[in-house]
Write a protein that binds this DNA or RNA. Structure first.
Lengths: 343, 343
DNA sequence: TAGAGTTATGGTAGCGCTAACGGTATGCAA
DNA sequence: TTGCATACCGTTAGCGCTACCATAACTCTA
């Protein structure tokens, strides 16, 4: 067991540093925050004292006194696939050199948990909130509106926003995919997705897809849902199931790339003619796809970019929209890859 | 632009609720924290007032007054692969019903950033710290030792710890893999990994591997490193490169499953006899592997479990080791899969 | 009816820090 | 000399909440 030489009797305060260096607490505070005029000599003395004592400032007290908190609340549905960690990465990258700190809360796609997490986070009086989606409980929406800090809803722009929004139109993503499918001449389309009543983005993509197909007089031929487990494996299983049930299907639209990749691997193993007899497409543009035997058609959800811009709005780094919400619509590019026939 | 009906002039305090409900601030505080005796009638009145005002408590003030903070600092190297998000998930799951909140900091495998992030987090006076690895700067170690709160170093147990440790022995993981490779009769072994001077766990696995091979009189035949980019794709490219450079190689040990999976897909496409002519193994036990055409040999790094146990230690949920560090060694199980010859 | 216990509420004094302002010392132009 | 910057440092008064103790109003006993 490793022990400290001197048992730290009690947590250190500014007063300890001030006594050790022979100046007032105020001056120590100034030195440690690089604020106000302090002579070079005193600065050195204070820093030396703080260092040798091992003093760590108490931001709780500081925040209470200054009414300034360098935390940004980030509320996301899940950490179980790469989507949200990637948004987080975008956020982190920007916040890193602003003195702001992200604090993450996870909702598991449950509205009531989102409300609870939001309440918890707001009670730390963060200087901004970034959260996924536009759908919230009434109470959550009220809290956001009354918080008096910048709010950025990310991922999705199809709906009314509280303040700022950064994302893509999932409805339009579905629509465009439908267009590409129709143009390529596919007729019997199947949808494969997650069984999540609260995954509004996936639902909107499906809505868009159906609308687009309807414009060409086509109805969805079949659908298949899963929950839990390894997405890649589920993709295989679902593909097998839907092909068995509806053999004449000629296109499969997956609600994410992971199950799409599983489906692709399955089809290749079965010797199915992709994209000739069967077209495939996913959604997200995950890095993983680049290493697959064939490039799955997909649309990039711009996750890094979304995180970056959201963080910039919170950090006040974007010109314009200081007051009032800013709406940033990113446009995902359809990547046809090798799993949709060329028209 | 959606507006609140009444512009919130100024942030609400306990006093507002107290005035609205006609009781003292103290009583309001008691109601909102479910602490102490309050009559049912007053409780109702207070809750109603708080609700209708939209009051959100100020934990900053509360924490300062009570000297209690419900935050747990979690410091990890990266969010770019599933490893750490999965540890996070384990942590979250346990903390969720303890009233504790994880706060995440990312170091990008840079020791100085770890030190900076730690300093930042300690200044919020969290009630515990969970951080990856045993290697820290001297200053960071000193801060940890003086913090006076439970510290849990996770992932790795090969080395001296500050307080508690939960993890696996990466050295032994490498050793065991070497044993399996040798027993299966492979002779010319190659290693493929990341180019990260500070990824100590990967290094320790390699050390263990080399030691194990040396016991059988075998030296590593070749090695290949990468950085950045899509791991799956890199796995392919590296495999191609190493096979071209050292054609007589008969086993490839990958430092993670993602590049291993890329290598596996490449080998299958090339029609290479796996595991007959060429054996493959990765590390981590990622969920992804289940959907692959063939099961890659791997060792589970017990990430969820590590997160869970670490959080339990912080939450004081584990019997015993309240005082003094607890050392929890998990033992990853070698899964031979279909890419190592049966002896 | 005093005394002692119970339950429900309020008053007071900080928690450790910073905003705002005040004071002192020094320099330099008028 | 006065006036007035400027540089440096200290004093005071909270920030919004909770720990701790006091108090009030009611029991219930002997």
């Amino acid at each position: 067991m490793s022990n400290t030489p001197v048992a730290p009797r009690r947590t250190l305060t500014l007063r300890d540093v001030s006594e050790a260096s022979g100046v007032s607490e105020m001056t120590v505070s100034r030195v440690l925050r690089n604020r106000g005029d302090v002579s070079e000599a005193t600065r050195e003395r204070v820093l030396e004292a703080a260092r040798s004592l091992g003093y760590v400032p108490n931001k709780i007290a500081g925040a209470l006194a200054s009414q300034r908190v360098n935390l940004v609340a980030v509320i996301i549905p899940s950490l179980s696939n790469m989507v949200y960690p990637e948004v987080m990465t975008g956020i982190s990258n920007v916040l890193e050199d602003t003195g702001l700190q992200p604090v993450v809360g996870v909702t598991h796609y449950v509205p009531d948990r989102e409300e609870a997490v939001l309440y918890e986070m707001l009670s730390w009086r963060p200087s901004g909130v970034i959260l996924a989606g536009l759908e919230h409980t009434d109470a959550a929406r009220a809290m956001l509106e009354n918080a008096g800090i910048p709010i950025v809803e990310v991922m999705d722009i199809d709906g009314p926003a509280v303040d700022s929004v950064v994302g893509i139109s999932h409805r339009r993503a579905g629509l465009e995919m439908a267009g590409a499918i129709v143009r390529a001449g596919y007729k019997r389309i199947g949808f494969l997705g997650t069984m999540m009543p609260h995954d509004h983005r996936a639902r909107k993509r499906l809505d868009g897809l159906e609308e687009g197909l309807a414009q060409a007089g086509i109805q969805l031929a079949d659908r298949e849902y899963y929950s839990g487990g390894s997405a890649l494996l589920k993709g295989r299983e679902m593909t097998q199931a839907i092909l068995a049930r509806t053999p004449d299907i000629d296109f499969l639209y997956y609600s994410n790339d992971m199950i799409g990749a599983g489906g692709l691997l399955y089809c290749l193993e079965q010797g199915i003619d992709v994209p000739g007899k069967l077209g495939l497409a996913g959604f997200n543009g995950v890095e993983l796809l680049e290493g697959l035997p064939r490039r799955l058609a997909t649309m990039d959800a711009c996750r890094l970019e979304i995180g970056r811009i959201a963080a910039e709005i919170i950090a006040g780094k974007r010109s314009g929209g200081i007051v009032g919400g800013e709406v940033v619509e990113l446009t995902p590019k359809l990547q046809l890859g090798d799993t949709i026939r060329k028209p």
